[in-house]
Simulated scan of single mutants.
Amino acid sequence: IDIILILVAMSAVAPPQDVKFKSINLRNIVEWSPGPGTPKGTWYAVEYAIYGEEDKAAPGQEVWKGVKACKKLRKTWCDLSTETSDLEEKYYARVRAVGKNGSSEWNHTDRFDPFLDTTFGPPVVNIVVKERQMFINLTGPMRWSNKESNEPMAEYYPGSLMLYNLSVHNKRTGQTVGISLQIPTLLLQDFNTLYCVSASVYFSSLPIITQVSLKQCVTTGKGK
């Protein structure tokens, strides 16, 4: 009997590791790493559950739902943006590996709150130079969508004020100035000056993680 149990254990597929949500602009992806010794040809199945939703037939148990696009995955991530789109809910996901000799145990994520756990991507920074004037306009960030139309992330946080944090480096003086903006437009005026600009957003009342845009550098006109 002991020999049979050992053989069964050796043939089982190792469960996925580091199963977690990664979310930017409410594109909510579950990702994981293969377990140790995972053989080639292994695929993965993903399910999700809504926190607090119980199985009526088994009180105290979550209602796990399959994801049609993630039932037989070769890759190590699954997009659950649609399934986790309600910002008033919290979610779990679980993943298991499936191989020729059977399935692994499920491995679960921590509880995921899309409203607070998503990362705000950087705003789009648009710079226009007209002679000595440099106009800076900031847009977004926008909620991720697989459609052409998308909406500003700020619209989903109506009770909190989103501000822009603009960093402007003046190459001539060597000074870097941080500017907080509620209106996403700024005008700078100086002849023949190289400015380097980057931006992010922040909320004073919410613990939201944000990303900073890539630095853009432009030079104002030399004048007459």
Score class of each variant (00 low, 15 high):
211 Q>G: 06
207 P>C: 09
147 K>L: 11
7 L>D: 11
47 E>G: 03
117 D>P: 06
53 E>M: 08
155 E>D: 12
178 G>D: 14
41 G>S: 00
73 L>C: 09
176 T>P: 01
116 L>R: 12
33 S>C: 14
171 K>S: 14
77 W>C: 11
58 A>N: 15
8 V>K: 15
193 T>K: 00
154 A>V: 12
172 R>M: 11
113 D>L: 01
77 W>E: 14
64 W>A: 02
186 L>A: 10
61 Q>V: 15
150 N>D: 12
170 N>Y: 06
115 F>R: 15
10 M>N: 12
103 S>A: 15
19 V>Q: 04
182 Q>P: 01
199 A>P: 00
5 L>N: 15
60 G>Q: 06
37 G>T: 10
220 T>H: 02
127 I>C: 05
68 K>L: 14
1 I>C: 06
57 A>I: 05
128 V>F: 08
161 L>F: 10
90 K>W: 04
188 L>E: 05
18 D>R: 14
4 I>Q: 11
205 S>G: 01
187 L>E: 11
61 Q>I: 14
89 E>T: 04
166 L>R: 03
220 T>N: 00
5 L>T: 15
29 I>R: 04
52 G>K: 03
144 W>D: 01
126 N>F: 10
176 T>M: 08
125 V>L: 03
105 E>Q: 14
41 G>V: 00
179 I>T: 14
182 Q>K: 07
105 E>F: 13
208 I>C: 05
184 P>R: 01
34 P>T: 04
